[in-house]
Structures are given as structure tokens and as C-alpha cells.
Design a protein around this nucleic acid. Structure first.
Length: 494
RNA sequence: GAGCCGGUAGCUCAGUCGGUAGAGCAUCGCCCUUUUAAGGCGAGGGCCCUGGGUUCGAGUCCCAGCCGGCUCACCA
């Protein structure tokens, strides 16, 4: 018999012993009156004498994660959420049945207790338990108490064990939830309406990416998991909702890395009558106020580097950034041969047949992006790589657009929306031509979206923020898998 | 998809030159009514990722594969 089975068998045996003692090993309702975190926050600073005087009674529940028994008494550590609180279990203070439970208790079991707060002679804040209710039996042993669970594969595949064994992981996901709640509150406070748009699209659009394909049997059609909600949210602007947002998953059938998961969480929001400059201000306010609210500061540390989220942030035009970082002549941006030569000189690998804008964009991604550690708005992207953005009034080859970079990564993408249906049709047709030419990520013509624009869309600015990456930044995590509860892995047992 | 690194007890890890598989925690038994990585004494527990090969003999060397991490490529 292998060791896991041996430990399981032992625990299954204890199920019977519990039943014999009249205890249900899988119990039911338990009236929780206190949370460990709250008790620690309210009372753990009080001196021994105060606690003895106040005789504070409490009732809480959780998982037993440590047990130190000796003879007819012992200590247990109860884990309640991310908090741990010590229990004192003494035979004299418990019913015969309750003490029988203590004797059968295993690491991992769930219990509920009632008792009073006190300090041990080593000054540890502890609950002296008077009543104990067995709630649920664990049949599998917990990971090692000192090192916890470190095997990354097990941590991702069995996140439940990771969450039990590593309280800091519990903390990260609780922070994640608070960040998303904070974003919702921020937007709702400013008059945004939260909406849900389709996850299954007949035509994938709103971004350039490879989609996942699925099939609807009754309709007999292929559908695509959405790569972005953009075109649907803009339909709602046409419909007359002046401010909408959606926080939900996008799906992209592309590589997996420390900053890419096939499904990822995106915030997109649209503001009627506004332009991309308004969104720069809104983004600074959103991110810095979130940092203040969640982390209590606007200068944060990410992977050993200080990131200053205190506004205002740097603004830099796309072309200006390329020229300045690489000390290039402006003519490079106009001349394909010069751009190609510059790329070669800068050791930026490019396809020699690539178009001017592709070469320039390669130079940007290779030489500028990694330098954008502090929050920076890169503005005025060329029209060729911005098929849904409004042209600049001052230069029709550029768009009213920005991307926000923090820690060398793209965090947000925003622009004044293209609301001219005829221009949009031309751009779609340009994309269709690129698709004909072999670019399978170019946009398809979405006739219904064009029809919507033809009903008239007010001037509008829209933005998408990659929530997982924002959370990585806020929680100082290097890998997206550490901020996604169940990251995508190859299925177990091939 | 390519390169590098890894996979040994439930967990965290050792394993020398190729010579019968090790520790701590966890588990089981005994002792212990204020411990906190509790302690003491004793015991059990292994598909060394899988499949081939070399060898008298493979956890160890070779080949192929599986799974994971990191880097690169694509992308947010």
C-alpha cells in the first residue's frame, strides 16, 4: 500500500471512530459569529490582564492547519481565510465527546469552536476552547508545514491546495478581488453602466488576434470566442448609453507565457462626448487612486524596482519616442529603405519585404517598449495599426490614440473612436485586403457594426485595460499564472 | 514551435565513481495539561515521470517520449 493510501486509510478509519462517538464527520450548518482576522484586529494588541478581565467570548470556524498535542491538552492552529489563530484544547474544559473529537483530529479537518480569548504564558493570543463542533473530515494530508507547497505544477493544477498551504497566495487573490471591486466602484461613481456583451461572436473583431472557434449545433454555425468586446460596446453607445463598461474575459488562441494566458480579463469602457486626452486623465486617476486605496501608497515596488504611479505620468508621441530613443532622423519614418537600414543598424530583426509601418513598429517594440518602466502614455499611433481609431485632425496619417506602458508592458490601449461609418468601411476594406494578402489577424468586415455606425455614433473615447497585468503590478507578481486562479495548463494525464 | 533547467516517500529535499533507496515534516504506537517548525522513544511508508537501450548490475549513463518552469518567437 502506498503512503498516500495509508494516510487516507487511517483517516477513513477515523470517520468510523467519529461516528461511534456520535459525531457526524460531514456536518451541516454552523453559526459563525466571528472571523479570525477581525478578532486579531480588534483584540490581539490587548495585554494579558485586559483579556483576562474582559473574558471575550467568540465563535469561529476554519481548517486545522497545525496540531501540537501533549497528553490531555494541546494547541491547534485554525486557518480562517488568510488568517491563522491559535486554539487551546484542554480536556478539563471540553465535553467528553468534544475531547474524543480532539483525539481523532487530523491536519486539514474543519471545525467550529466557541471559547474565550486569552494569552498563553508565552504571550500568544489564543482562543481557550469550551465547545467544539466537528464540521468536515479531510482524507488527504496537507503539504509540509514549514516549506508549504512549492511545486509550481501542483500549485497551479491543485490551486485549492496552494490556497490552503500558502496564505500569501490567498492574499493575492483577495487583493485581486478588491482591485476589481475598486474599479467597478470608480466607474459606477462616474455614471458608467456595467453591461454584458456576447462572449460568442459570429465575426471576431475589436482586436488583432487569433480566435478560438466553437460550433453551435442548433444554429449550425461556427462561432468565435471573443477576442475583444469593443464592437459590441460601441453598438451600445450608438444605442444611447453614454457611458458603458464591461469587465470580462477575452480569449486569444496564441502563446502562453508569464504575461499571456489564453483567457484573460479585460476592462473596456466607453465615454460619449470625450476624447483620448480625457481618458489619459481618467486612467491616471483610476490607477493612482486604486493604488492608494488598495496598497495605501502611489509609489509601489515591482520586481525590485520602484514604480511611481503618482500623477501626472509621462506622455510621449509614438514617433517622437522612436526617434529620441534611437537618435534617428525624422526622415526614417517616411522612407521604407531608410527605416530598413535603421532597423538593421539597431539589430532589430525585420522581414525585408515588410511595409514601412511594420518596420517602424518593430523598431518601437524592440527599442522603446522595454524602456518604458515608469508609467508612460505613448500617443498618436499611425493609422495603419489603428483600424478603429479616429484620425488626428492635425495629421490624417496618425490617430487620436494612446497606449499606457508600465514596467515595460502594455497595460492599456485607448483612442477617440472612429465614428465616421464611411471611413470605418474603408479601413475594414483595407484590413480585408491585408487578410487577402495573408495576414490572418486582420479585421473582417463587420457589416452590422457598420450599419450601427450609420445610425450615428456620438464622438466617443474608449479604452481597454488588461486587468491581470494591472494586478501583477499591484501584487508584485512576475507571472500572470500567479494572479489567475486556474491558469491554463496542458490537461493532466496525456 | 526552439533552447536551457527540472521530475526520487503525502510534502520539502539529499542521493558521491554505476554496486541492494535516505533525511526532516506528515502518518502509526507509547509518554507528556501553556505549545508554537513542541519534545522523547519506537514503527511503517518508494512505478526513483514513462518506454526502450548499454551493463554482471541503472535513481545515476545513452535514446525516445510525457509533464512543468524559465528564456526566445507570436501576442495583451
Amino acid at each position: 500500500m502506498d503512503e498516500l493510501n495509508e494516510q487516507r486509510q487511517q483517516r477513513i478509519k477515523k470517520l468510523d471512530l467519529l461516528r461511534e462517538a456520535g459525531v457526524a464527520p460531514y456536518g451541516t450548518r454552523f453559526e459563525v459569529k466571528d472571523r479570525a482576522g477581525e478578532l486579531l484586529r480588534l483584540h490581539s494588541e490587548k495585554p494579558k490582564e485586559t483579556l483576562d478581565q474582559e473574558k471575550i467570548s467568540c465563535t469561529l470556524a476554519g481548517r486545522v492547519v497545525a496540531l501540537r498535542r501533549f497528553g490531555k491538552a494541546g494547541f491547534a492552529v485554525l486557518q480562517d481565510g488568510a488568517d491563522r489563530l491559535q486554539l487551546y484544547l484542554k480536556k478539563d474544559l471540553l465535553s467528553e465527546q468534544a475531547y474524543a473529537v480532539v483525539e481523532q483530529l487530523d491536519l486539514g479537518d474543519w471545525i467550529g469552536v466557541t471559547g474565550t480569548l486569552f494569552r498563553t504564558k508565552t504571550n500568544e493570543f489564543t482562543v481557550e476552547v469550551h465547545q467544539l463542533t466537528f464540521l468536515s473530515k479531510a482524507l488527504r494530508p496537507l503539504p509540509e508545514k514549514w516549506h508549504g507547497l512549492t511545486d509550481v505544477e501542483t500549485r497551479y493544477r491543485q490551486r485549492y491546495v496552494d490556497l490552503i498551504a500558502n496564505p500569501q497566495v490567498h492574499q493575492i487573490f483577495s487583493t485581486r478581488s478588491r482591485i476589481i471591486a475598486g474599479i467597478r466602484a470608480f466607474l459606477i461613481e462616474r455614471g458608467f453602466l456595467e453591461v454584458e456583451t456576447p462572449m460568442m461572436h459570429p465575426i471576431p473583431g475589436g482586436a488583432t488576434a487569433k480566435p478560438f472557434v466553437t460550433h453551435h449545433n442548433a444554429l449550425g454555425v461556427d462561432l468565435y470566442l471573443r477576442i475583444a468586446p469593443e464592437l459590441y460596446l460601441k453598438r451600445l453607445i450608438v444605442g444611447g448609453f453614454p457611458r458603458v463598461f464591461e469587465i470580462n474575459r477575452n480569449f486569444r488562441n496564441e502563446g502562453i507565457s508569464t504575461i499571456h494566458n489564453p483567457e484573460f480579463t479585460m476592462l473596456e469602457f466607453y465615454v460619449s462626448y470625450a476624447d483620448y486626452q480625457d481618458l489619459i486623465a481618467l486612467t491616471e486617476e483610476l490607477v493612482s487612486s486604486l493604488a492608494q486605496q488598495i496598497l495605501g501608497k502611489t509609489v509601489i515596488t515591482y520586481q525590485g524596482r520602484d514604480i511611481i504611479l503618482t500623477p501626472p505620468w509621462q506622455r510621449w508621441s509614438y514617433h517622437q519616442a522612436i526617434l529620441e530613443v534611437n537618435s534617428l532622423e525624422p526622415s526614417v519614418l517616411q522612407d521604407r529603405e531608410k527605416a530598413l537600414a535603421a532597423a538593421k543598424r539597431l539589430n532589430v530583426p525585420v522581414d525585408p519585404k515588410a511595409s514601412l509601418f511594420t518596420i517602424v513598429n518593430e523598431i518601437f517594440e524592440e527599442t522603446v517598449e522595454p524602456n518604458l518602466q515608469q508609467p508612460t502614455f505613448i500617443t498618436d499611433y499611425p493609422i495603419e495599426i489603428s483600424p478603429l481609431a479616429r484620425r488626428k485632425d492635425t495629421d490624417p496619417t496618425l490617430t487620436d490614440r494612446f497606449e499606457l506602458y508600465i514596467a515595460g508592458r502594455e497595460i492599456a490601449n485607448a483612442f477617440s473612436e472612429l465614428n465616421d461609418p464611411l471611413d470605418q468601411r474603408e479601413r475594414f476594406e483595407g484590413q480585408a485586403a491585408q487578410r487577402e494578402a495573408g495576414d490572418d489577424e486582420a479585421h473582417l468586415v463587420d457589416e452590422d457594426f457598420l450599419r450601427a455606425l450609420e445610425y450615428g455614433m456620438p464622438p466617443t473615447a474608449g479604452e481597454g485595460i488588461g486587468i491581470d497585468r494591472l494586478i501583477m503590478l499591484f501584487t508584485d507578481q512576475a507571472s500572470i499564472r500567479d494572479v489567475v486562479l486556474f491558469p491554463q495548463l496542458r490537461p493532466e494525464k496525456a
